[in-house]
C-alpha cells in the first residue's frame, strides 16, 4: 500500500523495520474524542496509516425487543470497513472477517462496560474503518473505548489495545500491514491498565513459550502508550487539556 517497495526487508541488520521503526516502537498514534454531533459519544483514531471513526449510541431501548435482557444491558458492536479503505475495492457487505472482528471487539469491551446498571437496554458501538494498514482491530478497540467514555457509559476501566508479533525471528511491537502479511506471527492484545487485565488476545502464527511471554510483555507496554493517548484525548475534550493529576486539584 501507499507506494512502498514490493520486495522489502522486514528487519535490517541494524534492527530497523520496513517503515523505519525500531522493534519496540509503535507507529504514530493520534486520538480525538468527540467529533460526531449525532452520536452520544464518538472518537477518531489515526494509528499509523489506519484511520478509524467510532460512534456510540445508548444506553437505549432494544430493538428488536426479543434481544433485550431483563437482568442486564447488552452491547452490540459493528466493525465495518469502507469500500475505499483498502487498495482494491472491498464489498461493503459484512464479510466473515468483519463479523469476527465485531465479535472479538464486543467481547474485549464487555469486561469494562458496566452494562448491569442498565437492564433492558442496549449500547450500540459502530466502528467505520476509513483507511486500513494492518492492526485495525486494535486501533478500532482503542477508539471504541474512548467513544464509550465520551458517551458517559460507566466503565470499570479503559481498554487500550496494541499488537505484538514476530518478524525475522524477532519479537516486535505494533505490527503493520507488510509485517502482518509477510511476518511470522501477529498477536493483537486488549488491556485494561488499572485492573491489569487482558481482554483481547489473539494469535496468528507460531511462537515459542519464551517468545509468547516477550510478546505479552511488550504488547502491554504498547497498550500503556495507547492508554496515555486515550487519557489525553478525553482530557482535551473535557478538561481543556488538563489531565487533572493535581493540576487544578485542591489538596486535602
Amino acid at each position: 500500500m501507499g507506494g512502498r517497495e514490493a520486495t522489502m526487508v522486514l528487519l535490517d541488520e541494524n534492527g530497523i523495520r520496513c517503515d523505519g521503526r525500531k522493534v519496540d516502537e509503535t507507529r504514530r498514534v493520534m486520538i480525538k474524542a468527540g467529533g460526531l454531533k449525532n452520536a452520544d459519544g464518538s472518537a477518531y483514531i489515526e494509528f499509523g496509516d489506519n484511520k478509524i471513526v467510532a460512534g456510540v449510541f445508548g444506553p437505549r431501548d432494544v430493538h428488536p425487543k426479543h434481544m433485550s435482557d431483563t437482568d442486564t444491558g447488552i452491547l452490540r458492536v459493528r466493525y465495518h470497513m469502507e469500500p475505499f479503505s483498502v487498495g482494491e475495492r472491498k464489498n461493503p457487505a459484512p464479510s466473515r472477517r468483519e463479523i469476527e472482528i465485531s465479535k472479538v471487539i464486543k467481547e474485549a469491551l464487555e469486561p469494562a462496560v458496566m452494562l448491569e446498571m442498565f437492564p433492558r437496554t442496549v449500547v450500540d458501538v459502530f466502528i467505520e474503518v476509513l483507511q486500513a494498514d494492518g492492526g485495525t482491530r486494535c486501533a478500532a478497540l482503542s477508539a471504541a473505548s474512548v467513544a464509550l467514555a465520551d458517551a458517559g457509559i460507566p466503565m470499570r476501566d479503559m481498554v487500550a489495545a496494541c499488537a505484538a508479533g514476530k518478524v525475522a525471528d524477532t519479537v516486535i511491537l505494533d505490527v503493520n500491514n507488510e509485517e502482518d502479511q509477510a511476518g511470522q506471527a501477529d498477536m493483537p492484545m486488549g488491556y485494561m491498565p488499572t485492573l491489569e487485565k487482558i481482554t483481547l488476545l489473539q494469535l496468528d502464527g507460531i511462537l515459542t513459550p519464551e517468545e509468547y511471554e516477550k510478546c505479552v510483555e511488550i504488547g502491554i507496554k504498547g497498550c500503556m502508550q495507547v492508554y496515555e493517548l486515550q487519557k489525553k484525548a478525553l482530557s482535551e475534550k473535557y478538561f481543556d487539556g488538563e489531565n487533572g493529576k493535581g493540576g487544578r486539584g485542591q489538596k486535602r
Binding site: P154, R156, L234, G244, G249, Q250
Partner: peptide, 14 residues
Amino acid sequence: MDVRRRYVIPGDTI
C-alpha cells in the same frame, strides 16, 4: 495525601 477535587476518566484511581 489525596487530592480533594480533580479531573478523572474511567479507570483512574481516586
